[in-house]
Amino acid sequence: MAVEALAAVPAEGSDAGQMRFRDSRSGHVFVVGTPETHGALWQGFMDGALAAYRRHDVEVALEYDRVIDGRSTALFIAGVEPGGRVVAGLRVQGPYSHADESHAVATEWRGHRGEHALRRLIANRSGAGVVELKAGWVAHDAEHRSVLREAVARCIVHATNLMGVRYGFLTADREVAPQWAVSGGKPAWWIPSAPYPDKRYNTVSLWWDLRGYRPLAKAGQLELLDAEQDELARFPPILPAQRGPVEGSA
């Protein structure tokens, strides 16, 4: 599926007032938005995600038809090429008030070993705030693909921070999980993997604690994270009830 360029998304500067940062290694801009306020960008993000998931025959995991209305997405971050095409990103669900709201509990681990352990983990951490990161992707034909994947991994930290919570987590196949963990993610090793979206995969959960991710980040990532967070801090909050950064997360 071809994803059309979004002329409405300028690749240079911040004069449009959109919350954003520039990935200094790829030169691409990552724009923070919500489906309600950034409709064209959201459509480009979801179409790009569909193409990426379809390429790996896991489009069922994207749940495009359920998610496209935007109601389950608190915010999303889209990586945009200089020409305006969305080539990477992720979306955020939450914060969760109880574990049953989690897609991982309700769908991925449902009926499998580890369901109750994951439920307890989310419940125990929900008091400090938990969000779930979904639909992380990078276009297969994007320039600087490996660099962009690390930028999306840093977006996990940015999104969790922007949501004003302490914990962010995502689920991924055990083989690719280390690629997302470079920004300081840590696997919940005691929770058995789930065969999601089918038995070809061993899906695990990775967690970011904004009070403890820094020692776990891959060399070179902290400098990029700090610079990007400084850029994002120049913009007003994107969510009406958005809280400030978690104390001790800097």
Results as ranks from 00 to 15, higher is better:
A139K: 03
H116E: 14
R25H: 06
V58I: 15
Y96P: 02
D23N: 06
D100A: 15
S97Y: 04
G44Y: 07
V86E: 00
A117C: 11
G136P: 01
E36D: 14
A74I: 03
F76M: 02
S126I: 15
L118Y: 11
R120H: 11
A117T: 11
L133R: 05
G70K: 07
P82Q: 05
T107R: 05
R91A: 11
V130D: 01
K134W: 03
A106C: 08
T37A: 15
W137C: 02
A106D: 09
G129D: 06
V87T: 09
G83P: 00
D23H: 02
V131T: 01
R113Q: 14
A104R: 00
V105Q: 04
P95C: 14
S26G: 00
G111F: 15
E132I: 10
R85F: 08
D47I: 02
N124Q: 09
G114S: 04
G129M: 09
S24E: 04
G79D: 09
E132D: 06
V32P: 03
A104N: 00
H38V: 12
D47Y: 14
A51H: 01
R113P: 01
E59H: 13
R55F: 10
A49P: 05
G70I: 02
D69C: 13
D57L: 13
A40M: 02
E36F: 12
Q93P: 02
T107H: 13
A61C: 11
G89K: 03
H116G: 12
G136W: 04
H116L: 12
A104V: 12
G111H: 13
A88E: 00
S97F: 10
V60W: 05
L50V: 10
G83M: 04
L50T: 08
A40E: 09
